[in-house]
Amino acid sequence: MANSPSGETLTERIVRVLETFDTDRTVQTASEIGRRARLPSSTAHRMVAELVECGLLERDEDQRVRLGMRLWELALRGSRALRLRQAALPFMERVQARVREHTQLAVVENGETLFVERLSHPKAGANITRVAGRLPLHASSSGLVLLAYGPEDLRERVLAGPLEAVSPETVTDPARLRRDLVRIRREGVVVAPGSVEGVSTGVAVPVRERPDHVMAALSVVLPRDAPTGTAIEELRAAAAGITAAYGAQRP
């Protein structure tokens, strides 16, 4: 792709445009996109028009812009996340029916925890995570599982900091976090009260693609003082089921 005067490729600028959308900002004007993507106004308007024309963005009746259905369609074709969700959903539904709170599935993406599915009971407690939402790896039960079982270089990058505090109880001391990760690998479970919200406890287990590789974390979010034993049992059984179902999908 041709470079801009700043040295950026067209692909890099397109990614910047798409990254201005998030779970809280789903609709914008072209001018807002340009400002957030740090692009000249004329460049932003031209790029938005081209992306709308090819279906990656869409305009509503007020000429505001949102992510296009074609982008969603392309993202799902052959997606590893889609395969994982298809394998996981029946087992997540069983956990959800028995725990009746929030049940979540997360993976590592670009050094963060990316939540690819969430099921919630209407009367479930607080939970800030959303599908396609992200959190730092050290700041949730799911992320701690992924960090504990992830590559050594990923752990070292995270431990080098800075470690952001999502709540007052998020572990931000590298030495303590390192000890916690050793314990997680030994016990195969995370129980993290208050790491994201003070009123909640996250409980998570690894989901393995094969014995030596963890591909995801399966978690529930419980009220702060709720017992965790049943949730841990349900999560471990579900994780084993997901591993078997994911493997059975392979051609």
Rank of each mutant, 00 (worst) to 15 (best):
R35S: 04
T228G: 13
R25G: 07
R155W: 10
G111K: 09
R80I: 02
D62H: 15
R185D: 02
S120N: 08
F115S: 03
P122S: 04
S79K: 09
D180S: 12
L76I: 03
R36H: 11
L71T: 00
V108W: 07
V17Q: 05
E8V: 00
P40G: 11
E32M: 08
R176Y: 02
P251Y: 07
M47V: 07
V95Q: 05
I184N: 12
M47K: 00
T228K: 13
L144D: 08
A238I: 00
G111V: 07
A160S: 13
P168I: 03
V220K: 06
V171E: 15
R64Y: 12
V52S: 08
L147H: 04
G247N: 12
T29C: 05
L235F: 03
F91S: 08
P40R: 12
T43H: 12
R70G: 00
L82K: 11
G7V: 04
V189L: 11
D62I: 03
G55A: 01
E152N: 13
V95N: 02
E156G: 05
T11F: 15
T29H: 07
V190D: 03
E58K: 10
A49P: 00
R16P: 04
R186S: 14
A248N: 10
Y246A: 10
E19H: 05
P223A: 11
W72K: 05
P174Y: 00
G68R: 00
P227V: 08
A30E: 14
T201Q: 08
M1R: 10
L18I: 09
G143Y: 09
L57R: 02
E19C: 08
A49N: 07
G133V: 06
G161M: 07
D225I: 01
V196E: 15
V203P: 01
A30I: 10
R80Q: 09
M92I: 01
R83Q: 14
A30H: 08
A226L: 04
A106V: 01
L235S: 04
V166E: 09
V99P: 00
E50F: 04
L235H: 03
L57W: 05
S31T: 14
S79L: 06
P174R: 05
A106C: 01
T113I: 01
A165R: 14
T20H: 07
A81F: 15
V171T: 14
T129S: 14
V203L: 07
E117I: 07
M69W: 08
A217Q: 06
R46A: 12
S219A: 15
A126V: 13
P227M: 10
T228Y: 13
E19I: 01
G143W: 06
V107E: 14
V131R: 15
E197I: 11
Q104T: 12
S120Q: 10
S140F: 04
G78V: 01
V65R: 15
G194L: 05
P122N: 04
A239K: 03
R70T: 00
G125L: 02
S120E: 12
G68A: 00
R83N: 14
V190S: 13
A132P: 02
S195E: 15
R83K: 13
T172L: 09
